[in-house]
Amino acid sequence: MGVGTATRRGAALLANAVRIIGTAIALVLVLHVALTLLDANPANHLTIYVAELAARFNLGLDDLFLPDEPKLAVTLNYGLAALVWFGVTAVVVRIVRRLA
């Protein structure tokens, strides 16, 4: 196996890792929005865990929009954060693959 082949394989592995991690984070944000919209029990351990994870990965967008309806606020703010994660992940994956 040549150096070029090893580099391409390494870049492909890195790109896949970035894609998986970025997508997982975005899905946590989407799950938080879904649980909020579906009135999941806020005292449930799963709901609490997802909300805490989503708060870590919301990119500071949790108070960007401040509508009167709390569900709309979660949908807009965390939904936007999920879109940003999806977009940034896609761009970084393309960059890593092109550099190889």
Rank of each mutant, 00 (worst) to 15 (best):
V93F: 00
N77A: 02
V28N: 07
L35P: 11
A15V: 01
V50D: 04
L59I: 07
K71V: 02
F65H: 07
R97D: 03
N58C: 09
V74H: 07
W85Q: 03
H32D: 12
F57Q: 04
F57V: 13
T36Y: 05
T36G: 09
A73T: 03
L99D: 03
A81V: 02
A40K: 11
V91Y: 03
A24V: 09
I95Q: 05
L14Y: 01
L83H: 00
L31A: 15
V93A: 07
V28H: 10
R56V: 08
Y78L: 11
A34H: 02
L38Q: 00
A17C: 08
N16H: 11
F57G: 01
A12Y: 03
L38C: 01
P67V: 00
V92I: 13
L80V: 00
R56P: 00
A51P: 05
V50Y: 08
I21D: 07
A82E: 07
W85D: 02
I21C: 06
I25C: 06
V50H: 10
G79A: 07
A34E: 06
A82V: 01
V91L: 08
L72T: 12
R8V: 07
L59C: 08
R8I: 03
P67W: 02
N77S: 06
A34G: 05
D63A: 11
I95H: 00
A12H: 07
I20L: 15
L27G: 00
E52A: 14
I20C: 09
Y49W: 15
L99C: 01
T23W: 14
L37Q: 15
L76P: 01
L35D: 09
A12W: 04
A17R: 10
A34P: 01
V28S: 06
V33Y: 04
V84Y: 06
P67M: 04
T47Q: 13
A51E: 09
T23H: 06
A55K: 15
A43T: 08
L59K: 11
A26Q: 11
K71H: 12
V96M: 00
A55G: 14
A81H: 00
V91N: 02
A51G: 12
Y49A: 15
A82D: 06
A90D: 13
